[in-house]
Design a protein around this nucleic acid. Structure first.
Lengths: 152, 152
DNA sequence: CTAATTCCTCAAGCAAACTTGAGGTCAAGC
DNA sequence: GCTTGACCTCAAGTTTGCTTGAGGAATTAG
């Protein structure tokens, strides 16, 4: 098929529809420096279609519990309106690979634990792989301080 | 080894220390109906050691982005101060297995995508598996919502 | 007996990630 | 030529998941 009528620059409303988020969310992301736009003479936002990719990444990251602050950090390594090079990805990706793998491991441990516990009734924390504070769980922060940066 | 000096019922402070959360967090979880305690004559909370397991589950779940409301729902299927039976776990686990697997898949897609993008520079949304509207992402046309949260 | 520690309740505060609302501009369709 | 709708800004409100603080009681160490 021929190239469809997919314009390269989108209004905020189009972006919102395509990205599946609210317009206000895009405003917010922009204010937070996560995405970028330029303005029409009428002061309306225009987004490069590539920004959709960024929104996608942001949404997935949030879903898996990565705070915007960290998403921004990672995205700041990527050019926002230009083509992303292999080097760009490599750099940004390296930071996240590790993070994502950890989360996957955590999830798998939780899922696996549920399987495991069906048959064993292991209720002591000492031998429960799910709750091993010397491992990834505690490494993420032994406090409840998910919203604070004070943990190191 | 002989049974260590691990009492079966813990004070809120002990729980907090062992679970790696703040005392206030335990108060909060209790107020929210996620964990249970009884009181000493002095009105101090006492927790069955098994409650630690619950806290562990709660923490892991939160880390991977599952809201407390859903954790409570799942935990409500488990007896709080008694031994958990295979049937209990099976029931509770079944609900989460699916949810967890989905999240894992999402993460893996993101992680995998980053690998992929390092070498290919695929920046068009049309052929990006992460943001593929023909895939799970935008099967609905205008809304990419289902990709993010619509699980049904 | 006193001091430190741990606990209690309840209300208020806070951070993240948005949403809602008020008040206004701009281009287009009828 | 006016109304409709998409857009703008900026401030305030909302939800979730806690934390902090005030004010007070009971337990434990010396």
């Amino acid at each position: 098929m021929a190239t469809k009528a997919v314009p390269n620059d989108l209004s905020v409303g189009e972006m919102a529809k395509r990205a599946g988020v609210a317009v206000s969310t895009l405003h917010y992301y922009e204010a937070e420096g996560l995405i970028e736009s330029w303005r029409t003479p009428a002061n309306h936002r225009r987004y490069d279609r590539r920004q959709l990719r960024r929104v996608a990444i942001i949404r997935v990251a949030l879903q898996v519990g990565i705070p915007l602050r960290e998403v921004r950090e990672m995205l700041s390594g990527l050019p926002s309106g230009r083509a992303v090079t292999a080097a760009d990805w490599a750099k940004a990706g390296a930071i996240w690979q590790d993070r994502l793998r950890r989360r996957i491991a955590l999830l798998e441990r939780l899922a696996g634990q549920m399987d495991h516990c069906i048959g064993c009734g292991c209720l002591s924390l000492e031998n429960c792989p799910l709750y091993n504070r010397n491992d990834a769980l505690g490494a993420e922060g032994p406090g409840a301080r998910r919203w604070e940066e004070a943990q190191d």
